[in-house]
Amino acid sequence: MSDSIINLSYNIPANDFTFAGEASSNVKKMLSQLGINPMVIKRAAIAMYEAEINAVIHGGGGIADIQISPEKIFICIKDEGPGIPDVEVAMQEGYSTAPEYIREMGFGAGMGLPNIKRYADELQIDTEVGKGTTVKITININ
């Protein structure tokens, strides 16, 4: 049933807070239009937002690719930034390398990755220092 899969793609501009969250907001609207369960939408939207903001703040911008099928929502956020040296450490609540000016905007609580883990049914982080980071999030619809 390949015809029932919706593909969406967004560019995530680097350090541009004007549009940070735009892709997640659009995906949320699309999911609402599809009549998907509000709890599922909320989980997908929050997980995607956190990954999107991380790409903006830490990853130097990137690309978001989303696939919505009747069974699941698949979100892939890819950047070519500095990569994450130790994913296990980065996953800890409260761990953040966000600079001061970013913290002043309310980011940098070190809660983004833990939030993603909490809301995703599956989470895969592929990262290489100096190459970039790809965050893959799967949310089951049923």
Binding site: F17, K42, A45, M105, G106
Partner: peptide, 17 residues
């Protein structure tokens, strides 16, 4: 209630409903 006034509060408000 927040003291932030920059654009991103809109995205957060939207996503948290």
């Amino acid at each position: 209630i927040t003291i932030h006034t920059h654009l991103n509060i809109v995205a957060v408000a939207l996503l948290t409903e």
